[in-house]
C-alpha cells in the first residue's frame, strides 16, 4: 500500500494524469459545441445540459445498475435539452444567447430539483482500463487508469474534423453556418440542420456530464460541474472551431487544473489561489497571444451571432 514519494516528478505526473482525468467533460462538451456553432448557432446552455446529464446518468445507473445505460440516458436527456434550445431559437426574432442563458439556469435548477434523492445513494461507476500494468510504480499505475469515454472523446475529435471537412453532412452543416441564404438556395433548411446540430451538441454535453457523476469524481452532487460547461463553450472559440484544437485545449485545461494541487503537494504552498486559477490565466494568456487585429477570430462561422 505504501508508495514512495515522487517528489518533483509528481508535478509532471499529476499534470499528465490530471489532463487525462479532468479533460473528458471539456472534450465532449466542446466537440459537441463545435458542431452546433459550425451550423451557425451558439448554445450557452450546455452548462445546464452537463449538470442534467450528470444527474440523469447517475440516476439511471443507480436504478438499472448499468453505468453505460446511464451514459446513454445522459446523452438522450442532453439532446432533448438541445432540441428545446433549437426549437425556441427556430421562432422568429429569438436570440440564441439569451435562450442559452435561460436554459443554463433551467438545466441546473431542474437537475438540483430532480437530483435531491440521488445525492446520498451510490450508483455503479464506469470501469477504467488499467494501462499502467507495465510499471511497478503505483503512482503511474493510478495515473494510467483511463476511462473508455476518454478514448471515445479522443477518437471523436479527428473523426469530427474529418466528417466536417469531407462528408456531405459536414459540408451541409458548414454551409448553413457560413451562409444560410446559400444553404436555402441549395434546398437545405437551416433550421432543421441547426436542430440536429444542437441536438448533437446536447448529446455530447450530456455524455460529458455523465463522466463527472459516473467516473471522476464519481458521484452526483450540486457542486459537480462548477462552470465546466461554460468553460468548454469558451474553449470552442479558443480552439477556433476546430475539433482537433478542442482536444488539445481540453487536455491543456485538464492538466492546468491539476497544477495547483500538485505544486502544493511538493511544497509550493504560497499563493495556491493563483495556481488554482492557472487554467483561466492560461486561457487569457493564449487568447491574448493568439489574437491579432489582422486575423481576429479566423475560422468563425459566418452566421454565428457573436461574430456576425
Amino acid at each position: 500500500m505504501a508508495a514512495e514519494a515522487l517528489g518533483w516528478w509528481g508535478v509532471p505526473l499529476a499534470v499528465g494524469a490530471g489532463a487525462i482525468r479532468v479533460s473528458t467533460p471539456f472534450l465532449f462538451v466542446s466537440l459537441g459545441e463545435v458542431v452546433t456553432e459550425t451550423s451557425g448557432r451558439i448554445n450557452l446552455g450546455l452548462e445546464g445540459t452537463l449538470v442534467m446529464g450528470a444527474m440523469s446518468g447517475y440516476a439511471i445507473s443507480f436504478y438499472t445498475g448499468s453505468p453505460w445505460l446511464g451514459v446513454l440516458a445522459a446523452g438522450i436527456v442532453g439532446s432533448l435539452l438541445g432540441a428545446l434550445h433549437a426549437g425556441i431559437c427556430s421562432l422568429p426574432k429569438v436570440n440564441d444567447i439569451a435562450v442559452g442563458i435561460a436554459l443554463l439556469l433551467f438545466g441546473t435548477g431542474l437537475a438540483f430539483f430532480l437530483g435531491t434523492p440521488f445525492v446520498a445513494p451510490q450508483a455503479p461507476n464506469l470501469p477504467s482500463i488499467p494501462l499502467g500494468f507495465w510499471s511497478d510504480v503505483p503512482q503511474i499505475q493510478a495515473a494510467l487508469k483511463v476511462n473508455v469515454l476518454f478514448f471515445i472523446g479522443v477518437a471523436a475529435a479527428p473523426l469530427l474534423a474529418w466528417a466536417l471537412r469531407n462528408t456531405g453532412v459536414g459540408l451541409m452543416i458548414r454551409m448553413v453556418g457560413d451562409n444560410a441564404e446559400a444553404a436555402r438556395a441549395m434546398g437545405y433548411s437551416p433550421l432543421t440542420v441547426r436542430l440536429w446540430a444542437t441536438c448533437f451538441g446536447g448529446f455530447m454535453a450530456g455524455v460529458g456530464g455523465s463522466f463527472l457523476s459516473l467516473y471522476y469524481p464519481g458521484s452526483w452532487s450540486e457542486g459537480l460541474s462548477s462552470g465546466q460547461g461554460i468553460i468548454a463553450v469558451a474553449l470552442v472559440i479558443f480552439a477556433r472551431w476546430r475539433p482537433m484544437y478542442c482536444l488539445w485545449a481540453s487536455l491543456l485545461f485538464g492538466g492546468a487544473g491539476a497544477l495547483g494541487p500538485a505544486l502544493q503537494s511538493v511544497g509550493i504552498s504560497q499563493g495556491y489561489y493563483l495556481f488554482n486559477a492557472a487554467p483561466y490565466v492560461l486561457t487569457l494568456v493564449i487568447m491574448i497571444i493568439a489574437c491579432s487585429p489582422d486575423r481576429t477570430l479566423a475560422g468563425a462561422p459566418g452566421e454565428l451571432s457573436i461574430t456576425k
Partner: peptide, 28 residues
Amino acid sequence: MQVIFTGDWFMPVREAEVTNSLADQGAD
C-alpha cells in the same frame, strides 16, 4: 503530514485531484 488547501468548502473535482496528489506524494 502534507496539507493541501482546495480554496473552498465544496469543490468535488479539485478535492479528487488533491487526494490523488497526496497519494502520489506517498501519503497513505
